[in-house]
Amino acid sequence: MAEGVGAVSRVGPRGAVGGYLRAVGAIVWKDIAAELRSRELLGSMLVFALLVILIFNFALELDLRTRQTVTSGVLWVTFAFAGTLGLNRSMAIEKDRGCLDGLLLAPVDRSAIFFGKVLSNLLFMIIVETIILPLYSLLYNVNLFHPGLIAVILLGSIGYVVVGTLLSAMAVQARTRDILLPILLFPVVLPVLVAAVRATTGVLQGLPLEDYQAWLNLLIAYDVIFLGVAIVSFDYVVEE
């Protein structure tokens, strides 16, 4: 970090990379610091996630047999719903006091801002997931501790958050910003949810990797493709 600071006026290749990473890090640090203070974002995501799981409990009558088959679906629907809440809030914070303008005024590439927001959104998403998973496991006596599950959840969350961050940056700038994000986001992330649910089921049922390899490949492909699309188009979303 120290070299990056010194190299600001004369940006060499090292200074440029250092400055880029420093900006990404600064955004993540700022989001964590603000969240530690307010606890609004994680708090609302967690409470909402618990409510969704409780509603599912009564809607589906999660008896022992049903649980085996619907667990992954319930989990991912919960993550997706709670995720929109977090994404919306995270972008609304930037918009509220004109902070997004403040970010855009900084001499950093717009993609650094995008990556910073993606990383902090991803972090919040993963925190919620790591709290919800053991809780679900406890409530329904389903064993969810499986190393393969981490990979699936990570791949699924990355795709969801990358597209979600891009679309939430558009949604907060619209008049109808409170209702718009899920409508924009869900049809686009449908493949992520389908693939993540199927792969999670595969992992939880202890199937061999070949049985759900296709889903993992699909998730990786989705993540890569949309990371590319989002980096290119984020500039157009934040400019005026």
């Binding site: 891009l166 679309l167 558009m170 924009l184 686009v188 493949p191 389908v194 492909a221 989705y222």
Partner: peptide, 19 residues
């Protein structure tokens, strides 16, 4: 925004089909 979403949506359609 229309342009960006039009592109994002179009890219997602084949992936949805495959999934």
């Amino acid at each position: 925004f229309g342009s960006v979403y039009g592109i994002v949506a179009f890219v997602s359609v084949p992936i949805t089909f495959v999934s």
